[in-house]
Amino acid sequence: MWSWLEGHPVVAMQPALSDWVAAVRRAGLSGGSVTQTREDLERALKVLAVLPASGIPLPVLAEQTLLDTHALDDGTRCSGLVLRALAAIYDRPSPVDASERRALWEQAGITDDELSSVVLAGGMRVDGDSVVGRVLRLCADAGQPSSLTLRQIRASELTSVPERVWVFENPSMLALALNRFGAACPPIVVTSGWPSSAGVLFLRKLAAAGCELHYHGDFDGEGLRIAAHVIARTGARPWRMSSGDYLAAVADGPPVGRTTPVPWDDELAEHLTRMGTTVSEERVATTLLDELTQRHPA
């Protein structure tokens, strides 16, 4: 059973879950039963497979995945398994009280708030008369960033999207791009660290409309976990996130923190651990923006 868990597609897509797998294994069988333990894990993995969600309430998530609105209530075994897995993904301590559990669910896109969840974009021109399309075009033509709420994204159909969108981890990259390109800025979306519900839904809608998503983030422990998360949940492709890219840019800098393997480069986490130094997006900004110039000539 443990081999099944270690090789499960959800775990394989997010190697940060290896710590969760190890903890589950140490905890042993539920009630001494292999069958019960596997059933519990299958239920938890069903939930993890659809997270982060797009700002839905917890009972809705439970109904959609487990056909029981109370299956993820506080105190249930499934809720505990999922929350501990999320803590591993986001590199946070396991929650010990209601406020910490609520914060962890919110980070995974479980919320009723459609207004505070936002995503930044720039240089995006999307056809159609939806509110998102109009806001994006207006801001792109003015060489300004746009801030889209989850409510706006939910209400908008995206058509005739750009062929490629460049996804960055840090808002400073969008600022640098707008300063350099102005109204000719290539299409960019920013996750602002761990992506919000709005960010995940926006990227998923772009991908569903036929857009290629290319992701770049910081070369540090958390940056790799964010990258793996975005790639697994939106279908984005890693862009200049290889061992070679890291080694070509590494110099003095802050420590990388705890690293975990990533699916697209088996040696990348090892290189970060060995070198021990972060390479931020800002350090390689010129290289990244130069490539955008080549890909999107004025």
Results as ranks from 00 to 15, higher is better:
R295V: 05
Q107M: 15
L213F: 04
A269P: 09
L5I: 15
D91K: 02
W239K: 07
S280P: 04
P162G: 10
D220L: 08
E282T: 14
S196H: 05
N179G: 14
E114Y: 13
S160A: 15
A269M: 06
H296A: 10
L138M: 13
V132D: 11
R225W: 11
E270S: 09
N170A: 12
A232I: 06
R204Q: 15
L138Y: 14
Y215I: 10
L81G: 04
G133H: 09
A232C: 08
A44N: 04
V34F: 14
G182V: 06
H214I: 03
L51F: 05
L289D: 00
R154A: 00
A71D: 01
C211I: 05
V190Y: 05
C78K: 02
A285K: 08
G31C: 02
D73I: 05
G55H: 02
V10M: 06
S33C: 12
P297D: 08
T35S: 04
V230T: 07
R225T: 07
L51G: 03
I226F: 04
P59E: 11
L289K: 01
R164Y: 01
A251W: 01
R180Y: 05
L138G: 12
R84C: 07
S280K: 12
E267Q: 11
V250P: 02
P171C: 11
D220C: 07
G133L: 08
V119G: 06
R233W: 04
A175R: 15
W166M: 13
E267L: 10
A155L: 14
V60D: 00
T149F: 03
L268C: 04
A207E: 14
V132H: 13
Q294R: 12
L58K: 04
A140Y: 10
S172P: 01
D19Y: 03
A23I: 04
V165K: 07
P57H: 09
G133S: 15
V82T: 01
A142Y: 05
S280H: 10
N170S: 12
R151N: 13
T69P: 00
D218T: 11
A198Q: 12
L224W: 08
F219G: 09
L176S: 11
C185W: 08
F168T: 13
L178V: 06
S130H: 00
L115R: 13
A236F: 07
V11C: 02
P238S: 00
A103M: 08
H271E: 04
R283I: 13
E39D: 09
L268A: 02
T191I: 11
D97P: 08
S160F: 06
G244T: 12
M173R: 07
P187C: 07
A62V: 14
L292H: 01
R38Q: 14
R237C: 05
T111K: 07
D252F: 07
A98I: 05
G217D: 06
L158K: 12
C78R: 01
E169V: 07
R274F: 01
I231Y: 10
R25S: 12
D97C: 15
L176I: 05
D19S: 11
Y215T: 11
R204E: 14
L115G: 06
P15S: 00
G193T: 12
V126A: 08
A208P: 14
A184N: 02
Q107K: 15
I89K: 02
G7F: 10
T293H: 02
R164A: 03
C211M: 06
